[in-house]
Amino acid sequence: MKSTVEWQQGMVFKATSGTGHDVLLDGDKAVAGSPMELVLAAAGACSSVDVVSILEKARQQVTACRCEVNGERADAVPAVFTKIHLHFVVTGKDVAEKHVERAVQLSAEKYCSVAKMLEAAVEMSHSYSIEQAN
């Protein structure tokens, strides 16, 4: 796996993944998310992939899944994350709480590579809520 990061202008950089996908990053947060914001997004996306996949395999009728990620950073430089909380909002028809709980737990404890990597240095926590689809 590889990535290339190229300076565009100011504090804006373009990252190109090994599979050819581009994403902008902005140290000033004027035109794109900062690298640290994208770390949070990566944790939320990685975990969400797991949760949705596990729920689909359990034949749950999921119509939406949102992961709200909150991070706390150290006051000193480098301002690393000290705590990250992922809250999953799963929407669907008659989605069973036991399946959502299991999906979130499996993602946190076994499958999410990003969260597993971060938990070596960051206090990670997870929660979920279920909303009934119309």
Rank of each mutant, 00 (worst) to 15 (best):
V89D: 00
A133M: 08
V52Y: 09
D28M: 09
G44L: 15
N134L: 07
V114S: 06
A30S: 01
A64R: 05
M117A: 12
S107D: 11
Q9C: 02
I130H: 12
V51P: 12
F81T: 04
A45G: 15
D94W: 00
V104D: 08
V89R: 05
V62G: 03
C67E: 01
A76N: 15
R59W: 12
Y111C: 01
V12W: 03
E37M: 14
A45P: 01
M36T: 01
V52I: 11
Q132P: 07
A120V: 06
H21M: 01
A58G: 03
S47Y: 08
F88P: 10
D22F: 00
G10F: 07
S53Y: 11
S53L: 06
A43I: 01
P78Y: 00
V90T: 13
T16W: 10
A96K: 14
E101Y: 15
C112D: 12
V51D: 04
Y128M: 06
A96W: 04
L106K: 14
L106R: 10
T91W: 07
T19V: 05
E37D: 12
V23K: 06
R102N: 06
Q105V: 05
G71I: 03
H126M: 00
G10E: 13
S53Q: 12
L86D: 02
V100Y: 04
L38V: 00
V49C: 00
K83I: 02
S34V: 13
V31N: 15
D26L: 08
T19I: 03
L38N: 08
V114K: 07
D50K: 11
M11L: 14
S17I: 11
Q132N: 14
A74S: 13
S125H: 04
H87N: 12
L38C: 02
A43Y: 00
A115T: 15
A76D: 14
T82D: 03
L86K: 15
V95P: 11
R73C: 02
Q61P: 00
K29P: 11
A43K: 01
Y128E: 01
G10R: 01
H21Q: 12
A103L: 10
T19F: 13
G33F: 12
A64V: 04
A41L: 07
A79P: 15
R59Y: 07
T16G: 09
D28H: 14
S47C: 12
S127F: 15
L106Y: 05
F88T: 13
A15M: 05
